[in-house]
C-alpha cells in the first residue's frame, strides 16, 4: 500500500502531463468556439461583429459540407474495411510456416514508415498518372484504355493510397494477436473434428476481436484527419469530390481566410469526432484492459 507521501508525489508527477493536455485541449477549443460566433475574415479587417449562429448555418447548409461529410465517412470506412480484411488474410498467411518469414515481414511492414506526402506523390505520379504511370503502361500493354484515376475516381484513388499505408499496421497487429493464440485449443478442436472454417469462426475470430478493436480505434483517429494525401494529389477536387471535412475546413480557414466559418466547421468536426469517440471508447472500454 502506498503511503500518503508517495500519493502526493504521484499526483505531482501527473501534473505536467495532465495540465499540458488540458491546456492544449481547452484553450484553443474555447478560442475556436469564440471565433465561430464572429464575422471574422483575415482579409477584411473589421469589427469582427458577433453574428450568433450564422457561421454554423452557412457551414451546415453548404452542399460542400454534406459532400465532404460523406467523403469522410467513405474514406474512413473504406480504408478500415480494406485494411482489416486484408490484414486478417495477411496475418493468417504470415503465421504459416514459410521460408524467409523475416524478409516477408520487413517487406509488408515497409509502407507504414513512408511519410504520407511521399506515398501520395509516388502513387499519383508513378502509378496512377494516366499517361506516364505504370498502370497506364500496363493498360496499354494489354490493350485497354488507361484510367485517369484522379479525374474519374478521386476518392477511391485516395482510399487505395491510404489503405496501402495502413495495411501493414493492421496486418502486424493482427499477426501478433494470432501468434498469441492458444495452439492446444486449436488442436483440441481439430481432434473434436472441427474443420478449418469452423476453427476460424469459433476460435480465431473471437480471439482476434480485441486486436481488431485496437486497429479500428487507432486507424479511425488518424483517418478522420487525413490531410496530406488529399493536399498533394487532388487538392480536394474535382469540385469537392475528394474533399473530407479536415480539408474543407483547411481551405475555408487558411485559403479563404474565413476565420469565423472555418471555426464553425472546426467545432462541427469536433462534435462529429466526439460522437465517433464515445462509440469507440465504449468498444475499447469493453475490450481493452480487461
Amino acid at each position: 500500500m502506498a503511503t500518503t507521501h508517495s500519493r502526493t508525489l504521484a499526483k505531482l508527477m501527473l501534473l505536467p502531463s495532465v495540465s499540458l493536455l488540458l491546456i492544449w485541449m481547452i484553450v484553443p477549443l474555447c478560442m475556436t468556439l469564440y471565433f465561430s460566433f464572429l464575422d471574422y475574415n483575415l482579409l477584411m479587417p473589421g469589427d469582427n461583429a458577433f453574428i450568433g449562429l450564422m457561421n454554423y448555418e452557412f457551414f451546415l447548409t453548404d452542399p460542400a459540407f454534406i459532400e465532404s461529410f460523406f467523403n469522410t465517412l467513405l474514406l474512413v470506412l473504406g480504408v478500415l474495411f480494406i485494411t482489416i480484411g486484408g490484414g486478417i488474410g495477411l496475418a493468417i498467411l504470415l503465421d504459416q510456416a514459410i521460408w524467409g518469414r523475416n524478409y516477408v515481414r520487413i517487406m509488408v511492414l515497409a509502407p507504414f514508415f513512408v511519410m504520407p506526402t511521399v506515398s501520395a506523390l509516388v502513387w499519383k505520379n508513378m502509378f496512377m498518372n494516366p499517361v506516364n504511370g505504370l498502370f497506364a503502361h500496363f493498360a496499354e500493354f494489354i490493350g485497354v484504355t488507361p484510367v485517369d484515376f484522379f479525374a474519374e475516381m478521386p476518392l477511391l484513388s485516395i482510399i487505395i493510397i491510404v489503405s496501402w499505408q495502413w495495411l501493414p499496421f493492421a496486418a502486424l497487429i493482427l499477426l501478433t494477436a494470432i501468434q498469441s493464440l492458444d495452439r492446444e485449443q486449436l488442436e483440441a478442436a481439430e481432434l473434436d473434428g472441427a474443420g478449418p472454417f469452423s476453427k476460424f469462426i469459433y476460435i480465431v475470430v473471437p480471439h482476434l476481436s480485441r486486436a481488431v478493436t485496437a486497429v479500428i480505434l487507432i486507424e479511425t483517429i488518424f483517418l478522420l484527419s487525413i490531410f496530406a494525401e488529399i493536399l498533394v494529389t487532388t487538392s480536394g477536387g474535382p469540385g469537392y469530390a475528394s474533399t473530407n471535412i479536415t480539408y474543407l475546413i483547411y481551405t475555408q480557414s487558411l485559403l479563404q481566410f474565413d476565420v469565423g466559418g472555418g471555426s464553425a466547421g472546426g467545432i462541427v468536426a469536433v462534435i462529429i469526432a466526439n460522437i465517433v469517440a464515445i462509440f469507440l471508447m465504449r468498444l475499447i472500454g469493453k475490450n481493452l484492459e480487461g
Partner: peptide
C-alpha cells in the same frame, strides 16, 4: 482514457487558434 480521448480531438478543431497564436 481521457488522455487517449485528447488524441481524438481533430486537428482542424484547433487549427485557427494555433495558427493565429
Amino acid at each position: 482514457m481521457w488522455m487517449l480521448s485528447t488524441k481524438m480531438l481533430p486537428p482542424v478543431g484547433v487549427l485557427i487558434p494555433i495558427y493565429l497564436l
